[in-house]
Amino acid sequence: MDQRDKLIKEIRGESLGDTNVQSSSDELFQNQVLRPILQLQNDLFIASFLNYINKYKRDFYTKSVENKLAIIENAIQKDIKFRNALKGMIIGLFTNDEYALYIQNSSSLNKRMMNLLIERLKSQVQLFEKE
């Protein structure tokens, strides 16, 4: 393992979530790679979404909670530039071996990645209040 991979694994920390012998390879990747990265990058995702709403959704702060949740979901699912920026924040913390696994099944893993991120931001919607 090269120095970069070793450093990334140290920074990310331990696997999050339950896995067992019956876990699929995608589920293992999710719990061993995606969840720790999402946790590590959480503050960056929040800052990125705040920037997004200040640039493109200035009326976000006047919306109901339900509408705010829908905006979070739509921003990540439908705004390809924003989605790709978020993906880059995650993929940039893959090791070389993890990236090799990712490219074999990127479609399924992208879906998991974005769903986890949507749920993470929705669960913190109270942080997206005007100060």
Rank of each mutant, 00 (worst) to 15 (best):
K6L: 11
K6T: 06
I8P: 12
E10S: 14
E10T: 10
I11Q: 03
R12H: 04
G13T: 01
G13Y: 05
E14Q: 12
S15R: 03
S15P: 14
S15H: 06
N20E: 06
N20I: 00
V21P: 05
S23R: 00
S24R: 03
D26A: 05
D26C: 06
Q32W: 07
V33Q: 06
R35M: 00
R35C: 00
R35E: 01
P36H: 06
Q39I: 05
L40E: 09
Q41V: 03
D43W: 07
D43M: 12
L44V: 13
L44F: 13
L44Y: 14
F45V: 03
F45G: 00
I46V: 09
A47N: 14
S48F: 13
F49R: 14
L50F: 10
Y52V: 03
I53F: 11
N54R: 09
K55R: 15
K57D: 06
K57F: 07
R58T: 08
F60V: 05
Y61C: 04
T62W: 08
E66T: 08
E66D: 04
K68H: 08
L69I: 11
I71Q: 02
I71S: 02
I72W: 08
N74C: 05
A75Q: 12
A75E: 02
Q77I: 05
Q77F: 12
Q77E: 12
K78Y: 10
K78R: 11
I80K: 06
K81W: 15
L86H: 09
K87I: 13
K87W: 10
G88S: 00
I91F: 10
I91S: 06
T95F: 02
T95H: 10
N96S: 10
D97P: 01
E98W: 02
A100N: 10
A100S: 15
L101M: 12
Y102S: 02
I103F: 14
Q104G: 08
S106V: 07
S107V: 02
S108I: 00
R112D: 10
M113H: 03
M114A: 13
M114C: 12
N115A: 08
L116S: 00
L116Q: 01
I118Q: 07
L121G: 09
L121I: 10
K122R: 01
S123A: 02
V125L: 02
V125Y: 04
Q126E: 09
F128Q: 07
F128R: 04
F128C: 11
F128N: 07
E129K: 13
K130C: 08
K130I: 11
